[in-house]
């Protein structure tokens, strides 16, 4: 536990000591802010729906960008050898990095609460649905991040890591949008695998255990894959 915290603190420090965190946060707020204000002032509707709809799209770029360096950079600079020869397990390293990226995303989401608060002054907002949506967005970020970290562990090139994780999350994201092209037998399976499908439910304020299980198992699968990818150094 202590080791996870040590890695976590180091990762958070390096996010905020470089321009990475500030740039991604600014871009995140810029895009969500534009959708928020255009909806409010042009449409005159008191809803967070537009913001929630756009965030999964922003994630497609935002999350690969913050996770691409996690392992790729350590591999390139050789610091991975430092981490892996210290009395720390591979899983602790992966979890420390996962939690740091998740926290950075949580900070980005937290900053969008300024929209929620301003909306609450001018109209009636369903806080239950909003909280549900934020929970869903955080879980979705969890899956994206575990995929991003996995991609980063496969290579020592950050650009390659970005592209791999983008391709995986994009495929998972698009799955439920191509259902009409699939035979009906496959459709339900693909729908279940699709990230967006589960978010749809949560965003409506329905917190189904099936959705929770989907997100959590996705996170676990990719964290285990990352751990395996780190261990593969030993037998190749």
């Amino acid at each position: 536990m202590n080791n996870i915290l040590t890695i976590f603190k180091k990762e958070m420090k390096s996010y905020f000591s470089s321009p990475v965190a500030y740039i991604v946060l600014a871009v995140f707020l810029g895009i969500t802010g534009w959708f928020f204000t255009s909806n409010l002032f042009l449409g005159g509707v008191v809803t967070m729906r537009n913001v929630f709809d756009i965030i999964p799209f922003i994630y497609l770029f935002f999350i690969p960008a913050i996770t691409m360096r996690t392992f790729a950079e350590e591999k390139k600079s050789g610091t991975i050898e430092l981490l892996l020869t210290k009395p720390v397990t591979d899983l602790e390293i992966v979890l420390g990095k996962f939690l740091a990226a998740l926290s950075l995303t949580a900070i980005a989401l937290l900053l969008t609460w300024t929209y929620v608060i301003s909306l609450s002054f001018i109209g009636k907002l369903d806080f239950g649905a909003v909280t549900g949506a934020y929970l869903g967005l955080l879980l979705m970020a969890g899956i994206y991040i575990s995929i991003g970290i996995f991609a980063s562990s496969l290579t020592h090139n950050q650009v390659v890591a970005f592209i791999i994780s983008f391709l995986i999350v994009f495929a998972l994201f698009m799955l439920n949008k191509v259902l009409i092209f699939l035979p009906s037998g496959f459709a339900s399976i693909f729908e279940y695998i699709s990230i967006d499908y589960h978010f749809g439910n949560i965003a409506r304020g329905v917190l189904d255990t099936r959705n929770l299980i989907y997100y959590l198992s996705g996170i676990v699968i990719f964290i285990v894959l990352t751990k395996t990818s780190l261990e593969s150094r030993r037998w190749t």
Binding site: K13, S14, S17, S77, T79, I80
Partner: peptide, 8 residues
């Protein structure tokens, strides 16, 4: 390969 974090 000296494992240093150059930004620390």
């Amino acid at each position: 390969q000296n494992p240093l974090y150059l930004d620390m």
